[in-house]
């Protein structure tokens, strides 16, 4: 075949591909959905994984009884983990650090960044409570030496101490440190570290699967028009737009 015809054929193929996206009707698609096998047992595990990872310990225990699904972690460890998380969320940092160390001292030993963030949160709480002198002392004695080891720690420390320079901290440039979201950030960091130390994944699998659904639909969109699920909270199939 001459080069000319090869090129012509190739162009024709490209054109065909661009214009003819495969169309799958609702009826055909529903047939395919029907052929899919989903095991109840696996869905139960998925739900259990969510309850356990997110720390719903009582619900997880009940779900074990009601569904016969075994959790993939010792439920007692969830209670301890949630106690640490709660302490951080409430700003009881000394309590939180003590509890982490009771759980497993290696967590903070092997995770200097986490330890720094917990100490930083402790400093923030001192400032929030107006304990200025105590805050300064704590910053100089506990946090500054750590800053010497690590430039980013030092930057963070300076940012935090800057809170002391403003009278109206809520409207100052570093005011966000006093926001509840900072506590939640620290809480989720310590939560993740504890899960990792227990050889458990730090995130539940369900949100990733939902993301994967959107991703898979987007991928298939490139090649076919088919009924999509656009609203995760209804799970309704929507007819393909051609």
């Amino acid at each position: 075949m001459s080069l000319f015809w090869t090129v012509i054929r190739h162009l024709a193929e490209i054109e065909a591909m661009a214009t003819s996206k495969k169309v799958i009707t609702r009826e055909e698609w529903e047939k395919r959905l029907n052929d899919v096998k989903v095991r109840k047992e696996d869905m139960n595990k998925l739900v259990m994984n969510f309850l356990v990872t997110e720390g719903y310990v009582e619900a997880a225990e009940k779900f074990r009884l009601e569904s016969g699904t075994e959790p993939d972690i010792d439920l007692a460890t969830i209670t301890d983990r949630m106690a640490v998380k709660k302490a951080v969320q409430c700003g009881n940092m000394e309590d939180a650090i003590e509890k982490v160390n009771d759980l497993n001292p290696e967590i903070l030993d092997t995770n200097p960044q986490l330890f720094f963030h917990l100490q930083q949160q402790r400093l923030i709480e001192l400032i929030r409570n107006g304990k200025i002198e105590e805050a300064l002392e704590f910053a100089q004695e506990e946090l500054a030496p750590r800053g010497e080891e690590n430039q980013s720690f030092l930057d963070e420390l300076e940012r935090t101490v800057a809170l002391l320079a403003f009278e109206d901290v809520t409207n100052c440039p570093v005011g966000e440190l006093l926001d509840i979201s900072q506590r939640l950030k620290t809480a989720s960091e310590v939560n993740a570290a504890i899960l990792t130390s227990q050889s458990h994944e730090k995130d539940p699998k369900l949100p990733s699967l939902l993301k994967m659904l959107i991703w898979a639909q987007n991928q298939l969109d490139e090649k076919a028009a088919y009924p999509r699920i656009n609203n995760l909270s209804t799970g309704a199939l929507e007819d393909p737009t051609v």
């Binding site: 799958i24 395919r32 899919v36 989903v38 739900v47 659904l213 898979a216 991928q219 298939l220 799970g235």
Partner: peptide, 20 residues
């Protein structure tokens, strides 16, 4: 359940993509 519907959709998308 709604979870099952989403999982079926996810599986069907993967299979169709592979087919294409």
């Amino acid at each position: 359940s709604r979870l099952e519907r989403l999982l079926r959709q996810l599986t069907a998308c993967f299979l169709e993509k592979r087919y294409l």
